[in-house]
């Protein structure tokens, strides 16, 4: 017996959510790149800006991805919501690493384009070759690949303070200790994949509300940023890492409390140490 997927009617249409958050994410990624390009040796202020704006870019991208997942999964894709997150990041990580090779100021745009191309092909395969016949499939998987790519860029910026290929492939002390060769990209990969699918998966049901799900996406983004900020102590100066850690912690705490409030608003009842009363008794 399966549970029917029901979604609320959105107050804000998906296209608006996508444009707004996509543009904001790109904007913050560019701030991160600009800050990284002017950062000199030993300074902490520019790396701190790069780390924090990378994290904020990841948060905005996750809001976009959350809206896409909701649109796609409301059709019932045969397997769970989490698989969509895995697909997004499996294709996103390839596009993201490809994009890091180009001129720093083209990285986010190049990543977006490559991810959209890879995603379009994957979406077309699912829809036509696998014959899933879901109207939004092609577009949604393309969007998800782009979301995966941009989220990884954001989380990479939080950890290393930069998105360039050279920065993420050379370590501080020995060659075994770079972002890629130490496998930290795997942490960003799975962190983003769960953070992308969690908000809709956790809030699905007949009483799902767009603002609550959206808030959870922001909360997941800041939670991921906390983890990457802790890891960033190994890559960036201590002060910069502390700044992004504290900002992530504050952002997470505020949204987490807000999420409790919204859940209380939507719940049927909010009981503490009280039994349920059975209608049949």
């Amino acid at each position: 017996m399966s549970v029917k997927v029901e979604v609320s009617h959105d107050g804000v249409p998906h296209n608006t959510v996508m444009m707004k958050n996509g543009i904001l994410a790109l904007f913050f990624l560019y701030i991160a790149i600009a800050a990284a390009s002017v950062a000199g040796d030993g300074s902490w202020s520019y790396p701190a800006i790069a780390c924090v704006s990378g994290g904020i870019a990841a948060v905005f991208t996750l809001r976009w991805g959350n809206s896409t997942i909701k649109k796609l999964c409301s059709y019932g894709i045969g397997t769970g919501v989490p698989s969509a997150g895995m697909l997004a990041f499996g294709s996103g990580v390839i596009a993201m690493l490809f994009a890091t090779k180009v001129n720093p100021f083209l990285v986010p745009i190049a990543g977006l384009l490559v991810a959209l191309i890879v995603g379009l092909i994957l979406g077309w395969i699912s829809n036509s070759v696998l014959n899933m016949k879901i109207p939004v499939m092609t577009r949604s998987i393309a969007e998800l690949a782009a979301v995966g790519c941009l989220t990884l860029m954001g989380l990479t910026a939080v950890a290393t303070g930069d998105i360039g290929y050279d920065q993420i492939t050379t370590g501080l002390t020995d060659p075994y200790a770079s972002y890629i060769s130490a496998g930290i990209i795997a942490v960003a990969f799975i962190l983003g994949a769960i953070a992308l699918q969690h908000p809709f998966n956790a809030c699905l049901g007949p009483g799902e509300k767009q603002d609550r799900t959206d808030l959870l996406a922001i909360e997941c983004g800041f939670l991921s940023m906390i983890v990457m900020a802790v890891i960033s102590f190994a890559f960036v100066s201590q002060i910069a890492a502390w700044i992004s850690f504290v900002i992530a912690l504050i952002g997470w705490f505020v949204t987490y409390r807000q999420f409790f409030a919204l859940s209380k608003r939507d719940a049927a009842a909010w009981l503490d140490a009280k039994p349920f009363s059975d209608a049949e008794e």
């Binding site: 999964c73 919501v81 989490p82 899933m132 879901i134």
Partner: peptide, 10 residues
């Protein structure tokens, strides 16, 4: 995997 196991429409 998760609670969602709705069959696809097509």
């Amino acid at each position: 995997m998760s609670a969602i196991a709705a069959k696809p429409g097509a």
